[in-house]
Write a protein that binds this DNA or RNA. Sequence first.
DNA 1: TTGTACGCGTTATCAG
DNA 2: CTGATAACGCGTACAA
Lengths: 343, 343
Amino acid sequence: MRAKRPTSFDIAELAGVSQSTVSRALRHDSMVSEDTRLKVEQAARQLNYKVDVNARNLRSQRTNTLALLLYEDPGTSESLINPFFLSILGSVTRASAKRGYDLLISFQQSSADWNADYAASKRADGIIFLGYGDYTAYLDKISSLDEAGIEYITWGPVIPGQPGHFIGSDNVQGTAEAVSHLIATGHRDIAFLGDISENCPEYRDRHQGYLKALAACGLSADPVLRIDSQTSEEAGYAAAIRLLDSGHRFDAVVAACDLVAIGALHALRDRGVSVPGDVSVVGFDDIQAASYTNPPLTTVRQDTVAAGELLVENLLRLMNGRSLEQTIIPARLVLRGSTRRRE
Amino acid sequence: MRAKRPTSFDIAELAGVSQSTVSRALRHDSMVSEDTRLKVEQAARQLNYKVDVNARNLRSQRTNTLALLLYEDPGTSESLINPFFLSILGSVTRASAKRGYDLLISFQQSSADWNADYAASKRADGIIFLGYGDYTAYLDKISSLDEAGIEYITWGPVIPGQPGHFIGSDNVQGTAEAVSHLIATGHRDIAFLGDISENCPEYRDRHQGYLKALAACGLSADPVLRIDSQTSEEAGYAAAIRLLDSGHRFDAVVAACDLVAIGALHALRDRGVSVPGDVSVVGFDDIQAASYTNPPLTTVRQDTVAAGELLVENLLRLMNGRSLEQTIIPARLVLRGSTRRRE
DNA sequence: TTGTACGCGTTATCAG
DNA sequence: CTGATAACGCGTACAA
C-alpha cells in the first residue's frame, strides 16, 4: 500500500497557489515572486515532490536525454566489448552528466533495429554513434534522422565530404608518427595488420598514415606485409601467424588496434620470435591492457576523455542550431617496451 | 523546414480506422483482427510512424527503462573507472536490451544528487545500483525508494539481514579458495592488501575468506601483514611499498582487487623482488589487464556476464511483484604465472 | 506577478 | 472486435 505520487496540483493546494504557478516556480526561470517561490519549494520538499519527466517531456517536446548507440563490428564476439569503446563510454557518461543530460545507452548488433529508434520515438534529443557499423545502414539511419530533424554525431573517421558530423582521432597522423619513428629507429620491413576495406575507414586511414610515412622516407610498402585481421585478439593472433607462415622477412608489426597488436604479441612469442629483440610491435588506442603486456605495448594513444567531451559538447552545439567545424583529435605515440632501435 | 511527426491519428486516418484501434493493433497484444492489424502496420510503415514514448509512459505509468547507477568510491580518480564495473555495465546493457528494456546510466559521485532521482521522477521503472558508495547515504536512498514503491537491486556484498536486495560474488569463498591454494602450495606468510573498513564490505568479506582459509589450516593471521589500500593501482603500489618497508617477512600477497594487485606487482618488481620467484601475488576480479601483466596475474574471477544477467533478471522479477531468493555467484580461482609452489 | 484553460500523444475504460 | 471519450501531469498562451 504505497502513497500516491504527489503532483503539481497537490503541491499547489498545499502552497495555496495555482498549479501553473507551481510549475513556474519550480523551473526557476519564469517571473514569480521570491515569496511564492519559497512557499512552493517548501511544499514540494514537504511532499517529496518530483516532476514527472514523461509529462514534462510530452508537453515540452524535449527529453533532456542523449542516446549513446554502440554499433559493434559483426565480427566481435558476443560477450566482449572493445575496451576502447567502454572507455569512451565512460567519458561520454561523465560529460553528459556534467551538462545535466541523462544518457541512454544501447549496444546494437549491426543490423538496424526497429525498437531502438531512440530519437524518432522521442526518447532522446540527440544521438551519439560510437562507430557506425555497416556504412550503408549508417547512411539509411542518418537520412531518416535528417528528415526527422534530429541531431546526431558520430565517433569515427573524419573524412572530408562525409555526410553527417564526425569527431575522431587523427588516424593518419597517429600511425604516420608511429611508422616514422620505426623507420627512424632502423626498421625497414614493416608489416601492417588490419582490415582496410570500406567497412573500416578508420583502419583504412591508419593504413594511409602507414603508407604516407613510408613514402616520406622514400620507402615503398610491400603488399605481402599487409595482412587482414578483424578486431579481436584472436584475429590478431591468427593474422600474425599467417604473416610468419608467409615466410616474408619483417622487423616490425604495426597493428590497426591494440587488441590485434596484443594477439600478434602472443603469436610471435609462441613462435619463438622475440619482441622487441627480433621484431618491434606497435598498436593503436592505448587501452589499459596495453600497459601490462609483456613487453609493454608501444602504441598510439587516443584521448578518450577529450573524445567524450567533444562528442557531447558538439552534439549540444548542433542541438542549439549552431554549426560545427571539423574536429580532429590528435593522437600521440606512446613508447613502451615492444619497440627498440635496430642496428 | 521539417515534416511534422505523424501521430496515431494520422495513421488512423490513412488506415481508415479509429485511433484507439491503431494503438491496439500496434501493441500487438489486444484483440484486433488480423485484417485491420495489417492495414494499420502498413500505414504506420508508410508514414514512418513511431510511438511517442513520453506520451506512452505518461499514460501507462511505466517507462520500460531501467537505470544503472554507478556509485564510485570517493577515492577513485576522476577520470578512470574501475574496469571491472565497466565490464558489468556492458553485461547489464546486453541483458536489459535482450529483455526489451532501455537502460539509462549515470555515474554518481557518492554524494546524493537531487537531479538524479531516476525512479522518483519516473524516468525508470527500476534501478540497479553498481556499488552503493557510502552506506548511510545508501540507507537513505533505499528507504525513499521503498516509500515510493520503486524496485531496485544492488551489486555488492550479500550479507544476511541486509536491507534491500543484493546480488554479488561469493567473496568469502573466492578468497578462501585462493588462500587455501597458496597454503597448499607451501606459502606460510600471506599478506592481505585492502581496505577492510565498513566502507568496503566486499573487501571485508574477502578478508574474512582469507582469515577463514588460514584458520582452516591451523594458521593464524599476522596483523602486521594486513595493509590498507584504496582501490587503484597507485594505492596498491604504495601499500606494497609499505609492506616491504615494514621489514616483515612474507611469501605471498593477496590483494582485495586486481588494480591493487597490479600496483603491488609493480612495486615488487621495482624493489627487485621476484614474482613468483620470491613472492606469489593473487588478485580479485579478473579484469582484462590481469591476463597481460608480467607475470600474468593469478586471480579470483568474478563472472560479470552472470552478474549482468542476474541483476536484470532479478530486478524484473521484483518489478513483477515476485520475491527474491538470496543470490550469490560463485567466484573461481584462475591460476596464472604470478603464483608458484614453494618448497 | 498570478490564474485559467487547453493541449502534448498515448493508453484505458466503457459501450456498442 | 471496434469506436468514442476520458484521463495521465505538466507547460504555456492569454487574460486578469
